[in-house]
């Protein structure tokens, strides 16, 4: 019997993936329109004409970006997290555990990566059957016993099966576009600031407007991303216990992980959402801010729920 809500979660994820695929280019186009509108004479006809001209360029640009990210995301993520491929002969134990869960679920086995870091964390990534992978820190492999490790692997496997991973990767790719544009805008501000008085005052104002609009779009894109249900962690915990029949093992694994989830190699917050527990605990102490931008539900609550489940 499958945990109730899992099938609908998968469907919701597939739908959200498609919505994101539509929403992000739309947001980008809206941003372009706003920039054109405020930086030109604000003559609607002129603006519309110009906007129609640049639409194909923007869409082709997004398409190219997306194709590159689609093809190279596993390499990028490996670089961003410092993960390396793990060979079967290097660690037979992990391979056996993962293989057995996959067989019992009738799933294709994802690749295995290792992050050489003594703390405990793990994540799943990938978009298709060929690119799905699970990465474990070496601390995870060394400090957890077989049952606990099995629980963690099952948790990551259910992220893959529920299509959480694909949705997240797509959103990360798009947010990447906005952070890229935002960075470009800030660079151009610094650049134009250096040139200072030689240009007319108008151009400085325009750059400021561009920055403001880009910042708004960036913020919206981030909120869209975090709007993606955080329930997925609870659901993945539940379906992992469904797979292994050992919720206690996963609870005790989470307890060990919560003591030390910091992965020093992970510098970008963009990939934080992938992990089983946040690898970069928030520096902001204000609760509401934390809730809005939290990548993970509180681990204590997850442990409590798992123990109830048992």
């Amino acid at each position: 019997m499958q945990y109730i809500g899992l099938a609908s979660q998968t469907r919701k994820n597939n739908l959200n993936s498609i919505l994101l695929l539509i929403a992000f280019p739309a947001l980008l186009l809206a941003m372009c329109y706003a920039i054109i509108f405020f930086s030109s004479e604000q003559d609607t006809d002129q603006v519309n004409k110009y906007f129609l001209q640049i639409i194909p360029f923007v869409l082709v640009g997004v398409g190219i970006w997306f194709l590159i990210a689609w093809a190279g995301h596993s390499t990028f993520i490996k670089l961003a997290t410092g993960a390396k491929s793990l060979e079967r002969k290097e660690n037979k134990r992990v391979y056996n555990l993962l293989e057995n869960i996959c067989i019992s679920q009738g799933m294709k086995m994802p690749r295995l990566n290792i992050i050489r870091d003594d703390s405990l964390n793990a994540f799943a990534s990938g978009i298709s059957d060929n690119t799905y992978s699970i990465s474990l820190s070496s601390g995870m492999i060394n400090k957890l016993d077989d049952d606990e490790l099995e629980g963690v692997l099952a948790h990551e496997l259910s992220h893959i099966r529920n299509r959480d991973v694909r949705l997240l990767i797509i959103s990360i790719i798009f947010v990447g576009i906005f952070s890229f544009v935002a960075e470009m805008a800030f660079r151009s501000l610094r650049f134009s600031g250096r040139k200072s008085s030689k240009d007319s005052k108008g151009s400085g104002v325009i750059v400021l407007i561009i920055i403001a609009i880009t910042a708004v779009a960036y913020l919206i894109s981030i909120l869209l991303r975090f709007g993606i249900s955080r329930n997925r962690e609870y659901l993945a915990d539940a379906s992992a216990s469904e797979m292994t029949k050992k919720p206690y093992a996963l609870a005790s694994a989470l307890r060990k992980i919560s003591a030390d989830p910091m992965i020093e190699a992970v510098e970008s917050r963009d990939v934080a959402q992938l992990f089983i527990d946040n690898p970069k605990p928030s520096v902001h102490k204000s609760a509401s801010w934390d809730n809005l931008f939290a990548t993970h539900p509180p681990i204590e609550k997850r442990i409590a729920l798992l123990e109830q489940f048992a």
Binding site: E99, I101, I103, S104, G106
Partner: peptide
């Protein structure tokens, strides 16, 4: 035998 048990479950 372990793998067999897993495959049997499925």
């Amino acid at each position: 035998e372990n793998k067999l048990a897993a495959a049997r479950r499925f």
